[in-house]
Design a binder for these strands. Structure first.
Lengths: 173, 173
DNA sequence: GATATTCGATATAGTGCATAACAATTATCA
DNA sequence: TGATAATTGTTATGCACTATATCGAATATC
């Protein structure tokens, strides 16, 4: 696997080529054989995931939200009154790593930590008005640009089937 | 998104529970609502990818190979005589980051760097005999354990369809 | 032959992920 | 009730992966 974002075979750059190939006969270059790699589910899974995240970032760039931040806002909206541990756990984020993330969102006034009166150890998380507004705009961008593009490429039926299989893997694997 | 490996809601640990819920009536806990999150392709994509990589590591653990290392060995086997830049590029690895990776593989005697006679700047990469042997064993483990498990969960037809859609995304998205 | 390009490599920074440990608070149990 | 254990948010820290700039050596281009 591996697969980073950048690093496409030829990183297009207008300059003098330092190659010869075209001069000699046998251009054994062209493109390498992926071989069994194209049958490795994990490989395609990672490449696809990187592309999708990349597109997500582009589509929602005006709001400066990462996929992770968007998922937090979504979850806070659907589950008000929860504390950090609960939100972090359902997203698969470790509590220590969730702290800095919340600091970022809170410093942008997208959400708030409120000391719980029941349990003064925990912080109840709430979206602010601005947080709700940003989330609404983000949802619209995601739906009309990001997911819409996936529908174009895959077709609605395939997209649904793909989502279902991915959920199956995440659930039963 | 987000989604790390660990951090399942309850990280099983035999100890005294510091909860009350079961005592009081309304257990409003249970499980949070994912909401639109379950319709976000990128979210399921990432969760599935993490699970698949996790399983890959388990299945191939006796050989101590990461998905990235496995992909390099596969590519070297199919494309002998290539240099570092070519291999790194087709895998989406940046050349600087590929150096340490090759150091690891070479120190384990799985592959070799050979100064090219045509172009003394570049290193031709070759699998060693041990590298070929390890790759063969890894392929077997991946096929009989890793991919076999995916076939069980998804079914062969779905697995093929999934692979096709992921490739489509990686290609046309 | 002078200049630009490529190759492998180093240094470095940013991000994500993971674990240990701590103070404050709460739950449990004797 | 008091002692002990557990939980919450937090900090510190380390590891892995990713990304960019830069370098010397070698090669290509003009």
């Amino acid at each position: 696997m591996t697969v980073s974002k950048t690093a496409s075979a030829a990183a297009a750059k207008p300059s003098r080529p330092a190659r010869k190939e075209l001069a000699e006969g046998l251009v054994d270059d062209a493109a390498l054989q992926l071989g069994e790699l194209s049958e490795l589910l994990g490989y395609s899974l990672k490449r696809a995931q990187l592309r999708v995240f990349e597109d997500f970032l582009r589509c929602v760039a005006p709001l400066q939200l990462t996929p992770a931040q968007f998922s937090v806002l979504l979850l806070l909206d659907r589950n008000p009154g929860r504390n950090q541990t609960e939100i972090a756990n359902t997203l698969g984020i470790l509590r220590p790593n969730f702290v800095a993330m919340l600091d970022g969102l809170e410093s942008r006034d997208l959400c708030t930590r409120i000391r719980s009166t029941n349990d003064r150890r925990s912080h109840i998380l709430m979206l602010t008005d601005k947080g709700r507004a940003v989330l609404a705009r983000a949802k619209k961008l995601v739906a009309t640009k990001h997911e819409a593009r996936l529908n174009e490429v895959l077709g609605p039926a395939n997209r649904a089937a793909l989502l279902d299989m991915l959920a199956t893997i995440a659930r039963e694997f």
